[in-house]
Nucleic acid binder design. Structure first.
Lengths: 143, 143
DNA sequence: TTAAATCCTATCATTTTTATAGGCTTTAAG
DNA sequence: CTTAAAGCCTATAAAAATGATAGGATTTAA
């Protein structure tokens, strides 16, 4: 399961991507429009800024804007930033590898092999799910 | 991520499936062989018994055995029992559906659509990953 | 000067996860 | 009939993760 944090982050990013004319856009606008707790969202957007996914502008008429094209930001990147590993098992994660403590022999673990295949498939789809892709999907669903 | 509980459960089930001649097999045998905390595993096997995935036999020379063929028990079933929903979002879960609280319109949510596609793919693979399949994979990996 | 924004630091309640402890009950063998 | 070895049952609890909230400092444009 995606955490609410990651879900809020992606929702906010999609919202920003959809309002590129009005950028920068303030936390309070996003929080209100998308029903996200204001202070929680503030801390999330700070993380996105620190990770250089967003730019920020301080002061009146300030706010956040995408750092890069909507095609360059995908769900995998955001989920890894906020939730850590994407895979079902730590021993199969590219970015957050850890041994399964109880594991006897990683090489011959059948559960692990299944987890690898699911990881590959899931990752492919999450990387294809860029902000541009999600916005396009929503445009299509709108009709 | 799979919880340790679910991982331990699947590991134990695979172990039992591999030792069908010696069934029933005791918690302590499994715990020792697979490096799983004894009392924790005990509570997990109780859950599997309550869900009719395992049979138990009390008293000396008692223990647990599979309730059904190794082909009939798959990872999806075990994960749902111990961890709940398999999907990335609650609004996309077959067995544990919930609205995303903040969601404005589920029908036109692009994130949800991505989550549905990943759910379908993941579920297909988890359902194919029966105990028999996992054992066969390990036999193959052994060489 | 002021309004509206981000930035920064601290705190915190709740839930989930990962167990542990200890005794009761059942069963098969000797 | 006793005993060893197993599951059954109930309670407890430490640690980590999750999902926030509070309040003030700083920055910027009008």
């Amino acid at each position: 399961m995606l955490s609410k944090k990651a879900k809020y982050a992606i929702t906010a990013l999609v919202f920003i991507a959809k309002h590129q004319e009005e950028q920068p856009i303030s936390v309070s606008k996003i929080a209100e429009a998308q029903n996200i707790p204001l202070k929680f969202l503030e801390s999330i957007l700070t993380e996105l800024k620190n990770a250089r996914i967003l730019n920020s502008k301080k002061g009146k008429y300030g706010g956040y804007s995408l750092n890069g094209a909507p095609e360059s930001i995908d769900m995998a990147r955001v989920m890894r930033l906020l939730d850590g590993a994407i895979s079902l098992l730590p021993c199969v994660s590219f970015n957050f590898y850890e041994r399964c403590e109880e594991c006897i022999d990683e090489r011959t673990c059948g559960i692990r092999q299944v987890a690898m295949e699911i990881r590959d498939e899931t990752l492919k789809r999450l990387q294809a799910a860029t902000l541009a892709d999600i916005v396009a999907r929503e445009d299509r669903l709108q009709q």
